[in-house]
Design a protein around this nucleic acid. Sequence first.
DNA 1: CTGAAAGCGCTTACAG
DNA 2: CTGAAAGCGCTTACAG
Lengths: 339, 339
Amino acid sequence: MRRPTIKDVAADCGVSKATVSLVLRDSPQVGQVTKQRVRESMARLGYVYNRRAADMRSQRSQTLGLVVTHLRNPYFAELTMAIEDAATKSGYTLFQGFSRDEVPQQRRLLETMAEHRIDGLILLPAHDSRPEDLLETVGAGQLAHVLITRSVRGYECDYVGADNVRSGVLLGEHLGALEVSTVAFLGGAEGSSARRDRIEGLGSGLRRSGVTSPLALSLPAIGDEGGIPLVDRMLERIPCPDAIVAYNDMYAFGIMNGLRARGIVPGRDVAVASFDDVPDAAFQQPPLTSAAGHPEIVGAQATRLLLDRFEDPDRVPSTVLIEPELIPRSSTTSWSGRA
Amino acid sequence: MRRPTIKDVAADCGVSKATVSLVLRDSPQVGQVTKQRVRESMARLGYVYNRRAADMRSQRSQTLGLVVTHLRNPYFAELTMAIEDAATKSGYTLFQGFSRDEVPQQRRLLETMAEHRIDGLILLPAHDSRPEDLLETVGAGQLAHVLITRSVRGYECDYVGADNVRSGVLLGEHLGALEVSTVAFLGGAEGSSARRDRIEGLGSGLRRSGVTSPLALSLPAIGDEGGIPLVDRMLERIPCPDAIVAYNDMYAFGIMNGLRARGIVPGRDVAVASFDDVPDAAFQQPPLTSAAGHPEIVGAQATRLLLDRFEDPDRVPSTVLIEPELIPRSSTTSWSGRA
DNA sequence: CTGAAAGCGCTTACAG
DNA sequence: CTGAAAGCGCTTACAG
């Protein structure tokens, strides 16, 4: 039993296909009486609009692609939901794929989505994406796209993310006001643009508030390593610092567990702070100080920027940085000061 | 500058469109020399295969729809990733949408996906979905679909989920062996099939191990309420029981915080256990006992079942229950017994 | 081994 | 206000 098409509907109520097509879009060109008759036929036959056919003819697809690395980080989950929300509200349906931080997998996803003729792409790039990885698929003006959260060095395009430098400054100033004197930065992938920016901001925030020798140590994560082993590796190199700043909340959660396992009480013996402010940050023991990255705003802005790009494909790429917000909690404010 | 089509490629290398089409699928009907020439033209012109056109002609879409409620629960995030993985590996691209547990939003998503002519749908239904909500869009044999994690009472179709009754039994027997005598069940939406099954299993597990008056209280969550207010509402009704079983890990995390806020130490003063075993369960203070629901298996099986359904649309619906696994941790094992 | 033609289900000028 | 025809970019028999 074949699905009914507009041809069947047209035959059923004795009008032409063109008329049915106009009724589908509620065109004022068709009279109310005819419209009513056509709609009754549709309901009776169980007609379902075929967007693929419509879009093929009109050369758009009403779909957007979203490729992120994974959803294990609640920040990425929020981002994904915000983008889906904005896309849906603008009449687009979302293709979704996960690169798992692997460039070849990312490449396959982008290629497939391009073949499905998505109208535009939002990409949270895999860590070691190079410009050519993007150029060969979405670059060269073939496909409107915007990068989120991570930029790719040497690749210019629309970008939306939290202002990592500013987040670092906020945390640096906060810790400076608490009069910490030694700080370690733990976690994040070496070479990541976000990590570099967060460290840079942290350094200048600390300096600005009078901390003279700020970063005692900065340790990137190796592979999928979490916060716990980072604590051990830190303690092999330096005595426990006054404060630890984690690359993000997920690392911070692990770091606090790692500290406890070593008999060090986070919040009291060492101040711990981080980036993102995912919902669980407020419910840690102790509650975690974090610089909020507002994924719902990043997601909404990224979608907005992509849709704007459709209007004006040749506009110069823009970079939108979302203002972060420091959420101080007792993981830093209850720090007891140096012994 | 229009995108090149097979017609352009055909003109460029002096063959017919049909030949180019055959080369795209690497058909043995075309000679190596010709293939080589065609492929060079494609590369030179920057040809990108148009799946939409191809699929329209061949009456499939190579896409699957996935609609879940949201991604705030890590269990759903894992499930989503597992389904994406299985779909991608089978050559399908995934449309994704979030119902936010709202039936009208779910309905809109299903309708749009049907219009995009997805080949099949995987749905984690919004809480108060009724059979007619599904029948009107995906039901009536129009669209292959499988439900995951939550079933809809009175709606028969393919279903994959963790075995909730069995999970409850495992937890009940575990708590029984620890010789608890009063147990409260907290959280979950009233009327949810999963909640009913978990409570039922818990009850028979407790009874089976000799606990005579098992459930002192069973309190569903009101709206979006988390674990913390549930603790307060419980303590208004009964004295703190020997054990609290949460509807899932997310509630359990809140419940442990709520207990602490009341000066009750989870794990020592009251045993706490739960369902799902999301990654963070192991890193709570104390580490949380949970019945693992294996989302990666549920996701893979659901995708498998859907693809099988394509082969045999008229087969009777099957229900696949994934065997859970009890992961005992100190939130129960360190319980000190009744005072 | 390759080509000409029809068709997938729509939309879009263009007539009338 | 409505209809006939062409076309979106492919695939699929069918010839040769």
